[in-house]
């Protein structure tokens, strides 16, 4: 099996590479690239994302043909894709970080700033929080409800259709922290930094 971590020159993806390398060791061939040909021939894709919604979308658009290739892969051909943090957020129609920015539009919804109740909750939402699993999800196999995951974000994805939500977390309000729709997966938290439980989620994705 060939798995690609999409490197589109946005943010720090070393931890994603390290954790997937650890889990994939000897089982899966892992490639870190933005090469369209290699992405097309992969079996699975990981779409990381750090920095702002706008900077990530801009970086994706900067690589000729990348957005179309990802869409063919995940939407037309329905092959497994996992978005992490802003990688997940970009599934939305629109994001409001820095400036109103069009997202990939794969899952109807928007990305807006967490309502921190006038400063009552500090932003970014940084640290370990419990996830509340909302529906059975393939990547949560053997993951207990209320497991702790590591978060770093100030913006949240609000999907129109709540049935895509696979987990939420509580910070000021119920924040969507994981989605699953058919072959499309996304986590707001960072499985790559969430210790052994995070590695298990990565393993679940690689075993799909």
């Amino acid at each position: 099996m060939n798995v690609t971590i999409v490197d589109y020159q946005s943010g720090n993806i070393s931890s994603v590479i390290n954790s997937f390398t650890e889990v994939a060791k000897g089982k899966v061939s892992l490639e870190v690239t933005s090469d369209i040909k290699k992405i097309k021939s992969s079996d699975k894709i990981i779409l990381p994302g750090q920095g702002s919604f706008k900077s990530c979308v801009d970086s994706l658009n900067n690589i000729n043909g990348l957005v179309e290739t990802l869409k063919d892969f995940a939407i037309t051909n329905k092959k497994p894709l996992l978005g992490i943090c802003v990688g997940l957020q970009m599934f939305a129609d629109v994001g409001y970080e820095e400036a109103e920015t069009k997202g990939l539009g794969w899952i109807p919804g928007k990305v807006s700033k967490i309502d921190n109740q006038n400063g009552k909750f500090k932003l970014p939402h940084i640290g370990w929080n419990e996830i509340e699993i909302q529906k059975e999800s393939k990547i949560f196999k053997d993951i207990k409800d209320k497991s702790h995951m590591y978060f770093v974000h100030s913006y949240e994805f609000i999907p129109e259709n709540k049935s895509v939500i696979s987990a939420i977390t509580n910070y000021s309000s119920k924040i969507v922290c994981s989605i699953e729709r058919d072959n499309l997966f996304g986590t707001q938290f960072h499985p790559e930094k969430s210790g052994k439980i995070g590695l298990k989620i990565i393993d679940n994705f690689l075993k799909l």
């Binding site: 931890s15 590591y150 210790g195």
Partner: peptide, 29 residues
Amino acid sequence: AKECFVPLTVGGGVRTIQNITDLLLAGAD
């Protein structure tokens, strides 16, 4: 970073954008 899968912060002597790039590429979060 290859052995610890929790966030890693590195400080001390971080003075330039290049310093930050080097540390992040090495695996600092």
